[in-house]
Structures are given as structure tokens and as C-alpha cells.
Nucleic acid binder design. Sequence first.
DNA 1: CAACGAGTGGACAATCTGCCTAGTTGATCG
DNA 2: CGATCAACTAGGCAGATTGTCCACTCGTTG
Lengths: 162, 162
Amino acid sequence: MTIDELDARLITLLTEEPRLGMLECSRRLGVARGTAQARLDRLIDRGVITGFGPDVSPAALGYHVTAFVSLEIRQVAGHDPVADRLARIPEVLEVHTITGGSDLLCRVVARTNSDLQRVIDVIVDVQGVLRTNSIIALDTPVPYRVLPLVADVPRREGRRPS
Amino acid sequence: MTIDELDARLITLLTEEPRLGMLECSRRLGVARGTAQARLDRLIDRGVITGFGPDVSPAALGYHVTAFVSLEIRQVAGHDPVADRLARIPEVLEVHTITGGSDLLCRVVARTNSDLQRVIDVIVDVQGVLRTNSIIALDTPVPYRVLPLVADVPRREGRRPS
DNA sequence: CAACGAGTGGACAATCTGCCTAGTTGATCG
DNA sequence: CGATCAACTAGGCAGATTGTCCACTCGTTG
């Protein structure tokens, strides 16, 4: 699906000032309240907006180290039990199955470098994990963001809604 | 800094039902409105909660392909101009500087595999980029999440606030 | 003991929400 | 061409929520 320019502006607005009510949104967008309302509802039930979770900073909680750990695992048919076990480790924030030499890529956080060692040990202990390879993220010059993409879609689509 | 169990419950609650008002939150948490209010404010200005952005799904916008691209770059002293240029590419969602054989790791999205080729071409064109290596994320058994971490902190800290 | 931070419970006006109605407008289609 | 339909505007209304006060209670600490 695609979004039009008004949708993009709405998403941008809500990203920048998330606690705004719909009335204020409609005022800023220069449309009627019902319209803003309807647009937001549409974005939500089309799955473009999946939630409004509070964004929590692991660093602020003391988890200052971020690493990407790639795993080689013992291959099994069907649904992957390794991912399930990884999901039980709080420090594992994200798991992807990937192409290339490894099978899984995890984003993990830890309090310190030596705490990272502990977390990796926990991962290695997971049944089915054969080998791991860790890469530490030293800095994050571009933190996760989607806004440029959102702003780009209406342009690319020639501002036809649908 | 650390958070106590009430903070964790508040974050969990807001993650699960993000559009709740503070009054409803306080009811569900079993505390006075002012308390819930104060806790949230505190979490925000201590930087634990960085925002309430609407979570946008790139897939729902037609970007069905996610890849991790690692870059080798021409090293320059001081502030990195490559990252700045990468930040101008909408499909680049995230950039980290990393340890190991490569210098930067980017998360990128594209509409299709051949669109990914286009995006990679754009990245290779960036001044200072010497080589790239792409890994496609086939599936994401554990999507990004922080809740387990949040729930873990008060346990680990022995529920002392601060 | 006094001071202090954190929580409770309640009150107030101002505002916003959910819901509804009625009237435009622009595009599509028989 | 005229009918229909979806999307938008503009407004009204009751009920809920917000921001901001206040007075009071605890538990901790110097």
C-alpha cells in the first residue's frame, strides 16, 4: 500500500510531537478533525502504523554496549527452536535469519564489555548454537529512523492515495 | 540510572496500550494519578523514554526487503562525512560504526531484491565508500523489543529506586 | 525533632474525545 | 448527462481527561 502527502505529514507531526491530541493535529495540518482522525485510523488498520510504544533507551538503563552477534546453528527442519530460546534472553533485542555465512543475526545489549562476555556466554549456551561472532557497535551516527522513508513515499508515488 | 518495579509496569502498560491516558494508567497501576504522572515525567526527562513516536512498518509501505550492509570506507580523521551522506539516503534506516573487518554497518530497506541493488548502488556511489558487503534478512523471528530488558532491570537492581 | 521527598485523594476550569448530522466536492460509471 | 459514492468540511453535544492546584500522611535522614 502507499500513502499520500497528508498521511506523511501526519506521521511526521506525530513523530515530532507524539503527545498531541487529534484536535491539535488537525489544526496543524489544516484539515478537519474528522479527516485527521480518519487518516490515522486508516494508517493503523492498514498496518502502516503498528503502535505508539514509548521508545526506551537501553543506554539510559545502563546498557551502554550494543553488539551484533551472528550465529551459526545446527540446522533443523521447520520452525526454529533456537530463535525461541534466544527470545528468552532479555539482552537479545532483535533476531533475524540471514543469508551468507551465518544463520542468525542478533542485536544484543550489555552493561559493559565484560557484561557482554556474560551475555555471549548465555547465547553460546543455547541449545543448537554452534558458533558466534560478535561485532561491537562503537557509535551510532544514524539512529533508527523511518521518517525520510515516509516522506519519500508520496513523492515517489506521485501523491496518488490508495 | 535505574528504574523500579512501578516504572517498569508503567512502561509495559504504555507499550501494550499506548493510547491510554494517564488517568487510565493510574487506575490500572493502582496508584494516584499524580504518581503515575510524576513517574512518566521522570522517565522522560531522565532519558529512559525518548519519545512516543508512531511505529511505522516499512514493509507496509512496500519496503519488503531488509538488509544489513557493511561498508569499508576511506578513513578520515575526526567527524565522519560518510555517515552524513548515508543519512541522506531514505532507505538507510540506521548506521553504526563497528569493530571488526568493516567500518560501518547499515540497516537498509528496499522494495524488492532488485530495488535493493539500486539502493546498494546509491550507497557505493557515496564518496569515501570503498567496498560493501550485503546480508539479506530473510525473516525476523524476534522483532525489536525492549520490554524484557525493562522488566529485568528492577529484578536485577533489587527494586531500589534511584 | 524538623525537614524533605514521595505518595494520596480530592477539586477546579479548560480542553479534548467519541459520536452524530448536514452539506460540499470530485471522480467514476451506466 | 445525471446518479452515486467516497472523502472532506463544519459544527454541536455529553462525557471523560488534562493541567494545576491544595492539604494531608508516611518513611527517611541529618
